[in-house]
Design a binder for these strands. Structure first.
Lengths: 201, 201
DNA sequence: GTCTATAAGAGGATAGAC
DNA sequence: GTCTATCCTCTTATAGAC
């Protein structure tokens, strides 16, 4: 199927927001990056820039929800799994030249106290990550309360370390943050992933 | 001493950046919030908005460097101290109605891949936090390597949890993130603060 | 659904009197 | 060092032909 104009616009917006955030993103940049003329953009997104950002954020969030299950799949011990996840993130970030990995947290920081509709979009992404993560770790044998605490801690630490790593151009923050979170959960066993099981998405 | 115009402008810029970040901050807002006319602002900051943001970020960073020593002063065990610090942050944030506490991380996220001078200003703030924190925990009896790892982990986790807490309007992320980091360092003793010792600033 | 042209305003920054 | 008036660009968004 040919990718629709709508999707092209959203993809361009996600890429641009990873670099520029929300406020510094202009419709002209979206025009240039997507190839869609301004009239088409407003045809598909009548509410303009805010609507594009909201949908782009949600799309982007869905894509990242699959990352933790993917990284954890082979792991049978929680602490080791967390260390592996952060080490993987550190390597990815270094290979990408410390480009931003994900716009959600960047945009959330910009708008949490100044743009309620966008704040709600970001909140829904975080909420979905937490819900899916809790379900995932519960399916791997953790009690629900512990499962939720683990996901929240991983996301907070990872997002904070992403910002610091990008700013300092160093993977040290990711490795240090990963070790710190992992230590608390060393020795906790993870059930193996049932054969043929699907990602939660 | 009467507070100079320069300081008034910087203070206004810090407050505005906490709410709006960097890109969405306008000179007109700085004019309104500081009371200084636009001409005076460019007299004091000839390089304009970017220069104001750089200096505001650094000023703001210096102020926050004192927080960890303050919160940790009474603590004699590292894990408990970390839990206390995050609990304190959670209470502060709730009382403030989930307003942003500190613009450094928000702005760092916006500019890390798009505005090199501002990225460097943010990097210098993070770097100072790490250096001062390493010195502080070392003075409390931790080996330098461990001291540095602890500060980095605390800052990453705290900054990530701030964003999530503001976005979700909940202190749960701060408490969960704090517990996760603290667990790794439970049982590590802190030397008492020497009587009459000064903060590192 | 696509595209061009343009409106209406806000943006950062400057000039120059005081 | 303060302040007003203004410049020019870039912004979001719309109108309306195709």
């Amino acid at each position: 199927m040919a990718r629709g104009t709508r999707e092209t616009i959203l993809t361009a917006a996600i890429e641009l927001m990873r670099v520029h955030g929300y406020a510094a993103l202009s419709m002209k940049q979206i025009v240039a990056a997507s190839g869609a003329p301004i009239g088409s953009i407003y045809h598909h997104f009548p509410e303009g820039k805010g609507q594009i950002a909201r949908e782009a954020l949600v799309n982007s969030g869905v894509a990242y929800a699959a990352v933790i299950p993917m990284v954890m799949a082979e792991q049978l011990e929680l602490g080791a799994g967390i260390r592996a996840a952060f080490a993987q993130a550190a390597d990815d970030m270094e290979s990408a030249g410390y480009a931003n990995m994900c716009p959600v947290s960047t945009v959330a920081g910009e708008v949490a106290n100044s743009d309620e509709p966008l704040r709600l979009a970001a909140a829904s992404v975080f909420g979905d990550w937490i819900t899916l993560g809790r379900m995932y770790f519960h399916s791997r044998g953790l009690a629900e309360d512990l499962a939720e605490e683990v996901v929240i801690a991983i996301i907070c630490s990872l997002e904070g370390a992403f910002v610091m790593a990008r700013t300092l151009r160093s993977k040290t923050p990711l490795l240090a943050a990963g070790r710190a979170v992992a230590g608390t959960y060393d020795g906790i066993a993870l059930l193996p992933v049932p054969a043929g099981s699907q990602t939660l998405l």
